[in-house]
Write a protein that binds this DNA or RNA. Structure first.
Lengths: 363, 363
DNA sequence: GTACTCGCAGACAACGTTGTCCCGGCCGGT
DNA sequence: ACCGGCCGGGACAACGTTGTCTGCGAGTAC
């Protein structure tokens, strides 16, 4: 077996460390600065000299040191953007990550990512770390309730973009889903199919998207001339398991709802599980906020209000790059629309069985 | 509205750039080196001097520059690890990413990620980029057929770990799923339920995991005293759509299989879609390699051979860190076992309807 | 023919930090 | 009282690169 990490090809002095521009200059018989010019593609070097330098670079297997370069350059660019997400492992975050990586690649920039896990402390730590690494810009799906710290942490002029949730106390471009509108549309869709008793299943209420989705639900119910029944509203459902138990208990009451609106992915899945266990999956209407893979293959297929993470990511990246290119206009908010995808679960009519339950018989 | 990116708090000279250790030293009335010592937590500084320095740091809002620090330090550590994945947006890759981020965090290291999209060229480019950024170590889910270039690209001694697939031409620690065994177990499970005609649905055959999973299928079929029917073997199914059409055509023949083994996530999903469309989802047995969310909520729930991306990621990170800590032993291969999860689709018996099809009637 | 310009290349300093060396003072032992 | 060792702290150089300035030779306009 080959020795560990041993270079396969030659071209290097055995005992020496990596070659520097100085070594290349010596080997090519030119000055250090000329090597620098060649490496940076400055056109003023004569072609034959440039060729000499290239030969020496290849012969010595020279590698440019971006760190040293960044230190010396006047613009101090690291060609790095910092990306702070809820959890790089979840589908929404990783979809954002992917498109932002693609946009960054087009500008020859690299992406440093970190997961926040709803922990404001972690958010600050990561911003600090990325600031020490001199990231050129920061895209944050914020978790903290106060972002005024960004002013002190980041060098003045560092572009920041908030995505998915608004930031507080720091003016920056912001990319948001039309949460109120989307949740309203879902709720109205259920109302239009005859439902009058629609339960709301929400994530922690301190999360701004959860607040807005609840607001959309509330507004739609109120517009329809109904009042929101507080016993049909649940907040704080952060996992599928919590959502499942919440839905189970909803249907152990004498007057269960005939439809569910769930404000988030995992909650929707928990709701599906609960309805299955109760045998009510064909009886209770369900619309979930945020699409998820295989929603179309469930029985019934799940109607959702789909977000557009790809467009959100592209928009956030574009906003960041515009700032990096020197735009210093007022920060703006970009609204990314949702799309109601009808698949079946949201089009179920109110179940007579459940309605009869209202007259007294528990399920 | 607040001006863009304007610092909220004071403590900085308006026209000046970020303060350096020199500024802090002047403000604290100590030498530059003492500031460095305090920042690096060297214990030999007297407590009161250290306090003075800390005060100055806070007053000036000083931020350490890791780039300059790295350049000067003798060990040249950047506390960065490079992670090259198939696609940071797919569930398997992002699961790996997440655990590796967590392990890195425990060592105060950051992760630079990039997606390869099955493109060997892209793999080389990213390795080059990350080498210029002097990543301390590299974890690669390889795509290239030849990794001897790593020897020239990376500084000698840089630890490399291959994950999910083996690397070629460069000796390094490797973390692999037991693909042959897992695929064999799935196939034997189908055989044990009476199936004699089991189709294999595979990804591009140049992908090593696809080869190994096919090998496990082939071995199990052969062991059972049967011969592999080449018309039941399909390679090159890289998307769900391709898999769907492949399965459709499998069942438009007079002697369709009674069971399917799909070698990959998207292929499994395509197969499920096809069986649904054919109305055969309760008639044809199916086992998929690699688990996926909601597999348990489909009808019937999908039996899978689950991989363990979390354990793979932890193992890869641990191997990398061991090298960073100085271990120079022979590189090894770590095998991560699979687990057969019985959910229903893999336990269906051969369908009489399909078997009768064999005597002549097309479906 | 001279002066001016322009293209090209090199010498030198500097980016912000840490490694190395050295100095001054304090301690304890004789 | 003197010496040796130790410890806290500072001066200086260096990491690998690029910005700036200067010099040289050739081309061009008068």
């Amino acid at each position: 077996m080959q020795a560990l990490g041993e270079p396969a090809s030659g071209g290097e002095q055995p005992g020496k460390a990596r070659p520097t521009m100085n070594d290349v200059a010596r080997a090519a018989g030119v000055s250090l600065k000329t090597v620098s010019r060649v490496v940076n593609g400055v056109r003023s070097v004569s072609p034959d000299l440039a060729a000499q330098v290239q030969t020496a670079i290849a012969a010595l297997n020279y590698h440019h040191d971006i760190g040293a370069s960044t230190l010396r350059r006047s613009d101090r660019r690291t060609d790095t953007i910092a990306l702070l997400l809820e959890d790089v492992g979840n589908p929404f975050s990783s979809a954002l990550h992917r498109v932002i990586e693609d946009e960054a690649r087009a500008r020859k920039m690299q992406v440093l990512t970190g997961s926040l896990d709803e922990d404001p402390q972690r958010e600050r730590e990561l911003v600090q770390t990325f600031a020490m690494r001199r990231a050129d810009g920061v895209i944050i799906a914020p978790v903290s309730a106060d972002h005024s710290y960004l002013g002190a942490e980041l060098p003045p002029g560092t572009p920041v973009v908030f995505v998915d949730r608004p930031g507080q106390g720091f003016a920056a471009d912001t990319v948001l889903t039309t949460n109120v509108t989307g949740a309203g549309e879902a709720t109205r869709h259920l109302l239009a199919h005859g439902h009058r008793s629609i339960a709301y299943l929400g994530d922690h209420f301190h999360i701004s998207t959860a607040q807005h989705r609840y607001e959309g639900y509330r507004a739609a119910v109120t517009e329809a001339g109904l009042t929101v029944d507080p016993t049909l509203v649940t907040h704080g459902l952060h996992t599928a398991a919590l959502a499942e138990t919440a839905v189970m208990s909803l249907f152990h009451r004498p007057d269960p709802p005939t439809a569910l609106f769930s404000s988030q992915n995992l909650v929707t899945i928990g709701a599906v599980r609960a309805l299955r266990r109760l045998g009510l999956h064909r009886a209770v209407a369900l619309i979930g906020f945020d699409d998820f893979p295989l929603a179309d293959l469930l029985e019934p297929a799940v109607t959702v209000v789909a977000q557009n993470p790809a467009l959100m990511g592209r928009t956030a990246a574009a906003a960041l790059f515009r700032r990096l290119d020197g735009d210093t206009g007022e920060p703006g908010t970009f609204w990314i629309p949702t799309e109601l995808i009808r698949r079946g679960s949201g089009e179920l009519p109110p179940s007579p069985q459940l309605l009869s339950g209202r007259s007294g018989q528990p399920l």
